[in-house]
């Protein structure tokens, strides 16, 4: 069986990739996708921990993360649509003024 460290390392790499996406990308939708990558990295860590501790709690927390991710995606995408209507752009730098 694969040791726990491998899973945690993979999780760390995925999380880092997601973080880079959030910082680097200039497109609201890709930023949201990067956040999903990060959430999934965390899910993997939770499930791996749960498995190696012999409890189902890791899986339970994964469900909550998925639910919150669904809520986050719904609101985030609604925001993206609303912003796009105002500025005809998905670049977060276009939304710097508080009033339009």
């Amino acid at each position: 069986m694969v040791p726990l460290g491998h899973y945690l390392f993979l999780s760390a790499v995925l999380f880092a990739v997601g973080t880079v996406g959030v910082f680097l990308r200039r497109n609201v939708i890709t930023v949201l996708l990067s956040i999903e990558v990060m959430l999934n990295a965390v899910n993997l860590a939770f499930i791996a921990f749960g498995r190696f501790q012999g409890s189902v709690h890791g899986q339970v927390i994964m469900f909550f993360v998925v639910t919150v991710a669904a809520a986050e995606a719904a609101v985030g995408l609604a925001l993206a649509i609303a912003l796009f209507r105002h500025r005809e752009s998905l670049n977060p730098d276009a939304f710097t003024s508080l009033k339009w």
């Binding site: 791996a48 498995r51 469900f63 669904a70």
Partner: peptide
Amino acid sequence: LDAPFAAVVQIIIYAGAIMVLF
């Protein structure tokens, strides 16, 4: 990792619902 239910949820909810929204 012995979590088949989590795997299926991952596909149904994440891939099947959230990503369709995207």
